[in-house]
């Protein structure tokens, strides 16, 4: 029954629709005002109805003060890792250490290829992501005075200048479901970020955790080196026996249970309704924190 002991994070997942950009910006502001910790946006560069996620993250960072930001998750195949690394560090520096790097191997290969990207098999995608993490960490390693080189199968970097270093230890969180990706997380990443609606049962957290923990141990890392997060959806209203369908107190109990039993410490709500985000930040988040703190001190 793992609880990895991380502080809890609560965030929003806002549709980056370009039909009304001011609405997207408003929802980001609502997230900050509701005391959420994190605002995130999906990244599908081939989707013409969306704002470019990288641009949006930078723009929102400039217009907020406190809230942290992440792609959920950034599409690696259309964002070359060396450029991405420098962009991520730049955004972290500009925002005073508020950026986290949610990253994914990509999935919609037809669309990726149509945009000029390279088609990979799912397995190749994982290997490319692994190389990309090396590139990103290599570029961020600004203290190292040697130019960065990597002659990989998927990425070749022929002596890039390193730096800048980000303002804080930017977490690399991977969106993942399958064992190969989960092992990669255990070996190299800082977070696991699946979407709960894709799970058939919450026990998939336990199964995933086991794979990640084993891979981490093999790499000589403690299990707590990897934060477990989840994109969640739900509704507020009269209680039922479904997960996240009821009043805020019921959400808090259910989320606290996920934290204490499955080690999840980041909850990102997929919703574009300001009233719902407010309830999540103002009521669910503090109530969940309280329940988790009480149980953690009891266990200690």
């Amino acid at each position: 029954m793992p609880d990895y002991g991380h502080d809890l994070l609560f965030g929003s997942f806002i549709t980056p629709a370009n039909a009304a950009p001011e609405r997207v910006l408003d929802l980001a502001q609502v997230s900050e005002d509701a005391d959420l910790d994190l605002v995130t946006f999906q990244d599908h560069p081939y989707q013409p109805a969306f704002l470019d996620t990288w641009t949006l993250l930078s723009y929102v960072a400039a217009r907020t003060e406190r809230i942290r930001l992440s792609g959920n998750v950034i599409n690696l195949p259309l964002r070359p890792p060396a450029v991405l690394a420098r962009a991520a560090a730049s955004l972290d520096l500009l925002s005073g250490g508020r950026f986290e790097l949610g990253l994914g191997a990509g999935g919609f290969w037809d669309a990726i290829e149509a945009m000029g990207g390279r088609r990979l098999s799912p397995g190749q995608g994982v290997d490319a992501l692994s190389e990309a993490i090396d590139v990103i960490r290599g570029i961020w390693d600004a203290g190292n005075k040697e130019r960065f080189r990597l002659d990989g199968t998927y990425y070749q970097v022929d002596g890039a200048k390193r730096g800048p270093a980000p303002a804080h230890d930017v977490g690399i969180w991977l969106g993942a479901y399958k064992p190969r990706m989960l092992r990669l997380i255990g070996a190299k990443a800082d977070g696991w970020l699946p979407s709960l609606p894709y799970f058939t049962s919450v026990d998939q957290f336990a199964e995933g955790n086991a794979i990640i923990d084993a891979a981490a141990a093999e790499a000589g890392r403690p299990p707590a080196a990897v934060r477990r997060l989840a994109n969640i959806s739900g509704r507020f209203g009269q209680g039922g026996d479904q997960l996240l369908s009821g009043p805020p107190e019921q959400w808090a109990e259910q989320l606290a249970a996920l934290t204490l039993e499955y080690g999840v410490s980041g909850y990102i709500l997929m919703n574009d309704d300001p009233a719902v985000l407010e309830l999540f930040g103002q009521e669910v988040a503090p109530a969940t924190r309280e329940l988790v703190a009480a149980e953690r001190s009891r266990r200690r």
């Binding site: 641009t55 993250l57 962009a87």
Partner: peptide, 17 residues
Amino acid sequence: SGEETDTWTLLSWVAGR
């Protein structure tokens, strides 16, 4: 232009400010 800083990120930030 960014030198070390990524130019597009900096530009988007400046746009927001």
